[in-house]
Write a protein that binds this DNA or RNA. Structure first.
Length: 326
DNA sequence: CATCAGGGCCCTG
DNA sequence: CAGGGCCCTGAT
């Protein structure tokens, strides 16, 4: 394997998320599969990022408290970053990481909810976030389709190893996403050799749409949820399940709870109705119970879901283990 | 060893 | 609008 690209230039700044802010529960989601572009340990997250064509190595460090948040951000790069570049980078990070999200109303409305209230108590300051650009997230979504965790992990690793850029910074080596043009020049057969199966076609077609400039992530941000949904569904290989993830994670629609796949149905059914996963509550019944969370439907589900996976991180949750199949 | 279903999606009828 | 097929892989 060739030498990684060493990032020698370094710049440090500080970020001030809106309180309350829970660093670990925001920067690490225990239900996400591990990938070669990031590492987390309590209080620190290393994450690569491709911004305006430049591969960057980011390091976020918790330097505050839930009520007085302060995050040190160090950015490694190949060459010194200009002030305008730094400004757009910080604005992008603020957007993706949801640092200014105001959780006050959500907490006020649901602190007394018998199920959500205690979860909010445990995870005050947790917010949803997305580290990736839309294109990158679409690739992740494709790799998740019709595959269990282990397979998704191996497909993602193969893609990084073949098309990504290995970066060395802060004594870590991590992969950075590729520019769409790289995969646009690869053939479908070449992708299939990475054991992504029929997803090769979707990866090619989605990449092609970006290379042709048919998708503009920044323009989409200002569109309505329905317009975003329509634009995403128009992409080959992107269906309702992937769109549901993207509307919440990438476009921050806190109410986007409209899709329940069979394995998730079993888990929700146990969580919300304490039903045996082998005899789960119906999708309609589940969607109906989520309605009580109104415009925060998906945020509420996110809280309850993450609470479960954090619990699992500390001690195995017997009924859950057979449902997630590593 | 063989067969099968899966943390979707597309396409066909 | 229901249902078959698709790459692979692990489970049976």
């Amino acid at each position: 394997m060739s030498e990684p690209v060493r990032l020698e230039s370094r710049w440090t700044t500080e970020l001030f998320p809106k309180p309350p802010f829970n660093f670990d529960a925001t920067l690490h989601k225990p239900d996400h599969f591990p990938a070669a572009d990031n590492v987390w340990q309590p209080g620190v997250r290393w994450q690569t990022m491709l911004w305006q064509g430049k591969p960057l190595g980011l390091k976020f460090e918790d330097r505050g408290t839930v009520d007085e948040p302060r995050v040190a951000l160090t950015v490694w790069s190949q060459t010194k970053l200009s002030q305008p570049f730094r400004d757009t980078l910080l604005a992008e990070i603020e957007y993706r990481y949801n640092f200014q999200l105001d959780l006050a109303e959500f907490y006020r409305l649901f602190a007394g909810d018998p199920q959500l209230g205690p979860v909010i108590g445990r995870w005050r300051g947790m917010r949803p976030l997305n580290h990736n650009a839309l294109y990158e997230y679409l690739i992740i979504a494709i790799v998740l389709q019709n595959a269990a965790v282990r397979r998704s992990v191996s497909m993602m690793r193969a893609l990084f190893e073949h098309y990504g850029t290995r970066l060395g910074y802060d004594h870590k080596e991590l992969y950075c996403f590729w520019k769409p043009g790289i995969i646009d020049r690869a053939t479908e057969e070449e992708l299939r050799a990475l054991k992504v199966g029929y997803r090769a076609k979707s990866i090619k077609r989605v990449t092609e749409a970006f290379v042709r400039g048919e998708v503009d992530e920044f323009e989409l941000r200002s569109k309505s949820k329905e317009e975003q949904r329509e634009a995403l569904l128009a992409l080959y290989g992107i269906g309702p399940a992937s769109v549901w993830y993207i509307l919440f994670d990438v476009f921050h629609h806190l109410d986007a709870m409209d899709h329940i796949s069979p394995w998730e149905q079993k888990i929700y059914s146990k969580l919300f109705f304490d039903r045996d996963p082998d005899d789960p509550a119906g999708v309609d019944e589940l969607l109906k119970t989520f309605e009580r969370f109104g415009k925060y439907e998906m945020l509420a589900v996110h809280y309850i879901w993450e609470d479960l996976f954090w619990r699992r991180k500390h001690e195995p949750v017997a009924w859950l283990e057979k449902l997630i199949r590593l």
